[in-house]
Design a protein around this nucleic acid. Structure first.
Lengths: 201, 201
DNA sequence: CCGGGCCCCTGACGGATGTCATGCCGGGCC
DNA sequence: GGCCCGGCATGACATCCGTCAGGGGCCCGG
């Protein structure tokens, strides 16, 4: 019997996935949680065979939770399951010690299958995404550029960003200019959108 | 026996919701589709009692599909089920003839319940969302302003927007300025974000 | 028919933004 | 130590943007 922890912030989806997995004769869902902190806590306490984590969750996201679970309960294998196939997510998930990565677009049968494969030690990765990930490569953005771009994505003015990061007006403009160049965009809004799509934020 | 059509673009979620609904003794899922056009076609052909539609779908979104189903198969009651509780969505859904509106955050039991209530002629609306919807009110944006703002949300320059809508530079700036004023924002990026959050796009 | 709302355009102004050149500092690396 | 890279900053310059004050055209309701 494979024990599974399901973490997703949307109660309806969380329940539906759990129900579906529970119907499999060799799988048992031992916990359902709605955020990353709770996922880590439950993984440590219950030590399930597999943790199925959504990326978008309150308090601590799936990527961060994967890293902490990997560190505190290495026996628990992690599958990241997300809505968006951002290439950058895949890279970060793997770097966090995840064993599987699937998108919510996949056929339903694939989920139980992925759980079984991962439980047996194999790695499961969406092939389309893997290719995209390689084609885009790692983020060319520097740490500071990422921070600045993230802050600018809110839509505020340069001065707002500068104030929130304790930087000078001009410095923010420099970082943004650099980020715009690296993403191939022409405005900071477009740069933010592109970086987001590629999972660079 | 209540017959249900499930439409959601994410195969995994679609399958999971269908499985969960199918476990109810008085509910039968008669079709699963992945986009709005297919939903309309299936609703007309199979004439289910209830259609459960996600908002975000390719080709035709859930709101548009609701309107067409309501027009072509008035006997089929529609529930809009969405990830985001945008106040504007609720208003548009109701205007499209939907009978129910729930967010994917709701507890799982509520789904089957909503299906039964709607099938029996009642209306089901998330109370939190209803309040928000009333507090924000209808979109103050004019048709053109909405178009311009939507185009500007891509992140391009003013000239890009002007070109794509066959307008003058200055006209676009005027519309944007007006939209910025009405949303209470300070840049077009922020205006786009706020309008999006409120379901005004 | 006249007012008012929306759409489209023009022109101008001040401030915001993107780019570039340049400099200083600190950390890793040969 | 010398070197390169990244972060931070300054200053200057050419645009771009947001705002305002107009004006003309259209359609609808009073």
């Amino acid at each position: 019997m494979i024990t599974v922890l399901v973490a997703d912030d949307q109660a309806l989806v969380r329940g539906a996935l759990s129900t579906m997995l529970g119907l499999e004769s060799d799988i048992e869902v031992v916990a359902q949680v709605g955020d990353g902190e709770a996922a880590v806590e439950a993984a440590v306490r219950l030590s399930p065979d597999v943790a199925l984590l959504d990326v978008q969750m309150p308090r601590l996201d799936g990527l961060g939770a994967a890293a902490r679970i990997h560190a505190e309960r290495p026996s628990c294998r992690v599958i990241i399951c997300t809505t968006f196939g951002r290439p950058g997510y895949l890279a970060r998930a793997m770097a966090s010690g995840a064993h599987g990565f699937i998108v919510k677009d996949s056929p339903p049968e694939q989920l139980a299958d992925a759980v079984r494969r991962v439980a047996s030690g194999l790695r499961v990765v969406d092939p389309v995404l893997a290719a995209e990930s390689l084609s885009f490569g790692a983020s060319p953005l520097t740490d500071r550029e990422r921070e600045v771009l993230k802050a600018a994505a809110e839509g505020g003015t340069i001065r707002d960003v500068a104030k929130s990061l304790r930087l000078t007006d001009g410095t923010v403009r420099n970082h943004l200019s650099s980020a715009i160049g690296k993403t191939g965009a022409r405005t900071r809004a477009e740069a933010a959108r592109l970086a987001e799509e590629r999972g660079w934020l």
